[in-house]
Nucleic acid binder design. Sequence first.
DNA 1: CCTTTGTATTTTGTATACATGACACAAGTA
DNA 2: TACTTGTGTCATGTATACAAAATACAAAGG
Lengths: 225, 225
Amino acid sequence: MTDTSDLPDFGGLQIRTRSLHDQVVDRVRDLIIEGVLEPGSRIDEARLIEELGVSRTPFREALRTLAAEGLVIVRPSRGSTVRKLTPEDVYSMLEVLGHLERLAGELACARASDDAIEELEALHQRMMEFYATRDRMPYYKLNQEFHSRLAALSGNATLVEMQANLQARLKRIRYIGNRKSDFWAGAVRDHEEMMSALAHRNGPRLGEAMAAHLARTWERVKESL
Amino acid sequence: MTDTSDLPDFGGLQIRTRSLHDQVVDRVRDLIIEGVLEPGSRIDEARLIEELGVSRTPFREALRTLAAEGLVIVRPSRGSTVRKLTPEDVYSMLEVLGHLERLAGELACARASDDAIEELEALHQRMMEFYATRDRMPYYKLNQEFHSRLAALSGNATLVEMQANLQARLKRIRYIGNRKSDFWAGAVRDHEEMMSALAHRNGPRLGEAMAAHLARTWERVKESL
DNA sequence: CCTTTGTATTTTGTATACATGACACAAGTA
DNA sequence: TACTTGTGTCATGTATACAAAATACAAAGG
């Protein structure tokens, strides 16, 4: 084995060749979330591979990945469609997500480092600034990240993965349901409560707050289904 | 539109053409769970294609699906390996699964029909018979089904899906950790408690029992990692 | 003898060609 | 005219061929 201990540290300057597969997955996922590909609509393979400039092989592999993620439905010999979420689907996802985030909150209180909590606090503050100026889009994006980060603080990799998956599935719905929200102020209050509970490392209180927050999301979102 | 109201009912005798993709997914998943493909080992595409008698296209699509399910790791240009679970992985999965099943239990108490509960009770009785004769394999199989069914009673499709996914990932580990178990009696007692709680529709008690049951699973399994 | 570098081989990634099944539409029949 | 049934077209499923990358190995140089 070679001794590398006195070599200079080149840090993380990896050149990573992302496979076409990965690129297509990300791209198509975004198209779905942004609504360019409409829920329920057929996915025209020929057309999309044309636009993306890739061949069918990586494209179809990407569809399989997205199908496993729950964003796409593949029916044998009948092509693929963008999954259209029924109100029941959305409710069931929020129900599960609510409990996952509750768990995440409780674990975070028990396990997260002070530094990590402070970082989240900083992110929260940035969100508050965007709220002050009613800057919806950047607030929305930070909000997604806030929830992901909080999940990460649980130190539970599986929890992170499942939270991310559900968040991705719901992203579009939430984005739509976000526009006509008089609920924004309520959401902000939830977040204040969450941060406070986390700062005091009060697990049950944080868990409660997160579950309640998700329940409110359902109220906010259900009409736009 | 054709009126089909006075036609004989042919029931569910669909001929379903399962695509090669689906067949390969199931087959390879089984190979992984049964341990024929060992955790951490490289998946030799050429060899498996040969054995399964399919071409690379459906096989590789199947790998993508299994990767999304978390059973396989695909590293670009470096081939695929069977995911090897670290103890941390397993713990995190059981932690999440425990909370999902707790949720499932609570929902089942609130929502399940009496008939459905009775069916589960019947399944439980069959399990007890296999326990009486120490018939491990059929007990193990019914146990898997017991947990799936209980999840189904929650009436939450997302919960069912995620429970199934985690159960699949852990199947192999659990199977291994099952052999030298003096824990069997304990597991049976847990199940008795669970059925009793469900019969009384005592949600918190059932939730508690399921979470405790999963915690015990960790105790049972952790040494064989 | 060890390290490095070039080269061959193997394996993976991608494109394309061919086969098969689904759907639409037209022609035939009651 | 309405329903059935046949046929053509198109989309999807699968196989194979080709390209590119990674690994293994051997030769050259220190």
